[in-house]
Design a protein around this nucleic acid. Sequence first.
DNA 1: GCTAAAAGCTAATGGAGTTAGCCAGCCATG
DNA 2: CATGGCTGGCTAACTCCATTAGCTTTTAGC
Lengths: 186, 186
Amino acid sequence: MPRAGLDPAAVTAAAAGLADEIGLANVTMGLVAERLGVRTPSLYKHVTGQADLNRRIAALALAEVGDALRDALQGRAGRDALAAAARTLRSYVVEHPGRYSATLPLNPQGPDDPIAIGGARVLDSLAAVLAGYDIDPADTVHALRLLRSLFHGFATIEAAGGFEMDTDVDKSFEWLIDFIDRGLKT
Amino acid sequence: MPRAGLDPAAVTAAAAGLADEIGLANVTMGLVAERLGVRTPSLYKHVTGQADLNRRIAALALAEVGDALRDALQGRAGRDALAAAARTLRSYVVEHPGRYSATLPLNPQGPDDPIAIGGARVLDSLAAVLAGYDIDPADTVHALRLLRSLFHGFATIEAAGGFEMDTDVDKSFEWLIDFIDRGLKT
DNA sequence: GCTAAAAGCTAATGGAGTTAGCCAGCCATG
DNA sequence: CATGGCTGGCTAACTCCATTAGCTTTTAGC
């Protein structure tokens, strides 16, 4: 019998994929193991347990979001950057709802925790968006929290299927970007 | 032996209280039963299972939020109403993070589902807030989604301890209300 | 090839949700 | 006041899942 050749990253990736498909809450160690062609206890050679696995999924999601944001913001500023960041975040959450939901608990265990690092990278990108506007430095943190709250809330509700279908969600989203853009300009 | 005299509402209330104290994810049927002075299987005479219990908690939370909003908005309009609604929602979530988090899955099973009714009442209150502004009717739904996304996102992140403490969260919150108020006025 | 660490496995434990079936308290009726 | 049924609570039992212990075998480096 050859070995499966797993490592923490492979286990995390499998779990994250599963989470996107069936929801994070339905991800069991058994299903992850099955997907990897391995027996359940073998996972514990790479991950200390389910809590650890969830944290790794969160770190993965934050890193991916951070990368996507960095790419999307290349060479953009002002309204363009705002729109790009918003759309990037939204589509990431819609495509990867399971792994994104792993980021909600949000308890980094120190400055070197991958979760803290990933979160900081995301915030840096949002801060870069704000740099394109003329904002009183004292208000930057507030504006940052505005963007974070709004994007997170919108994406979470949409991923949960929370918007009734009567009116186009895409339209609302674009309207929203415009609303923020106008507000930040004054 | 006298009977405990339980009913679905009592079980739901106990579970909701527990959720606020230890987090929804940590609420087990055993703990709920213990709090009610009853053995675990007895709960199933009042609730069909954990899924049902979670839905009841969600319905309870939405009803409570709806009531709180209705009270808070009495006699207020415009910026006053906006601020009142925002503060009411925020403090509800901070005080009852467990039961509020039960509302996230958001899958009403029909128009007569208590979850749907409670959600509609909350949205009605937010719509009442918007009525105090001069908004193009075609944009009302967008503005509604703005408020919902922003308040939900802010409250969720705050309840999860997601804002770093350097800058005062209360200040950010008031700034946010102001930002929305100004934007809705134009 | 040889050895030791690492990776996988089987077996076993314990906790949580749930179901089945028993029994007693409560309520309405006679 | 007796009684018969319903209902709510209990014990026992089952399943599924996370986790641990301890064994075995691959594999990397000498």
